[in-house]
Write a protein that binds this DNA or RNA. Structure first.
Lengths: 123, 123
DNA sequence: CGCTATTAATTAACATGTGAATTAATTATT
DNA sequence: AATAATTAATTCACATGTTAATTAATAGCG
C-alpha cells in the first residue's frame, strides 16, 4: 500500500511494523507465533522485526514463566502513541481505497482474500 | 504461490525468475524496463535477477546499438527448455486454483487485481 | 556547439520473504 | 527418571522489495 507507506515515512516505521503495532493494540500482549500469524508475517521475519522494534522502544519482549520457550510481546506507550497519531489517517486511506474501487468490488476482494489467507481458518 | 514454488524447486529458479522467462517466451526480446513492467518487478530487482539468470545461462543481455543506454534481454534455449518442461504443470496448478476458488470468484479476483495493478493501463 | 535536462540502468543500504538448519525448553514414552 | 519426539524461537543464507543516490547516454535548447 503506497499511501500507507507514505503516511508512515515520517514515523520511520515500515508497513510490517505498523501491522505489528496494530495487532498488539487490538489484541493486547501475545506470544510470537500468535502475533506472527495475526500480522501475516513469517516467523523468521517477526524475529528480526521484533528485535528492531524493541531497540526503537516500540514493543517489549519478555519470557513466559509457564513455558520458557515462549515469548510475550507487548506494545509500549511509544508504540501506542504512533497508533494514536496515525489511526485516523490510516482509516481515511482505506476508505479512499474503498471508494476508488467501489464498495462492491472492495467487499468481494476482502472476502476472497480472507478465503485465500492461510492464516485464516476459512482457508 | 506455494504450489508454483514447489514445482520450481527442482529447477532451481524462483517465482520471479519464472515470470521473467514466461514474459520473454511470450513477447520475445525486449528492453529492461518493458520486461520489468510485464513481470511486475521493480527495476532494481530486475537488475539483480537478470544478472543471476545470465550467469545461469537462462537469458542473454545485449546493448541496444540505437540507444546505448538501453539493454535488450532475450531468453536462451536453456531458459526456453524450462518453460517447455513446466508450462503444462503450471497451467494445471492455475486450473486447480481456479477450481478450488470457484470460477466466478476467480474471474472477479483477476479483474479486480488488474484494476489495481499499477503496471496495467486500466489502473 | 556547449550546456542542461532527461532517461535507462545500476548501485547502495536497509527491510522483508523464504526454506532449511539449529537451539533450547517441554512433552511423551518406556 | 532417561531418552526420544515435539515445539517455540532463533539463526543462516540467499532472493526480492523499496527508496534514494549515482552513472552513462541521449535529447533539447539557447
Amino acid at each position: 500500500m503506497p499511501p500507507i507507506r507514505e503516511m508512515l515515512a515520517e514515523t520511520g516505521i515500515t508497513e510490517q511494523q505498523w501491522r505489528v503495532l496494530r495487532v498488539l493494540a487490538e489484541y493486547g500482549p501475545q506470544n510470537s507465533s500468535t502475533l506472527a500469524s495475526r500480522a501475516s508475517l513469517l516467523f523468521p521475519s517477526l524475529t528480526r522485526i521484533a528485535r528492531t522494534m524493541q531497540q526503537k522502544g516500540l514493543i517489549t519482549l519478555s519470557r513466559d514463566d509457564e513455558d520458557r520457550r515462549r515469548q510475550t510481546i507487548a506494545i509500549t506507550s511509544l508504540g501506542q502513541q504512533i497508533i494514536d497519531e496515525k489511526v485516523d489517517q490510516a482509516a481515511q486511506i482505506v476508505e479512499g481505497f474503498r471508494q476508488k474501487l467501489g464498495a462492491e468490488k472492495y467487499e468481494a476482494l476482502l472476502d476472497t482474500l480472507a478465503l485465500l489467507d492461510p492464516n485464516n481458518s476459512e482457508g
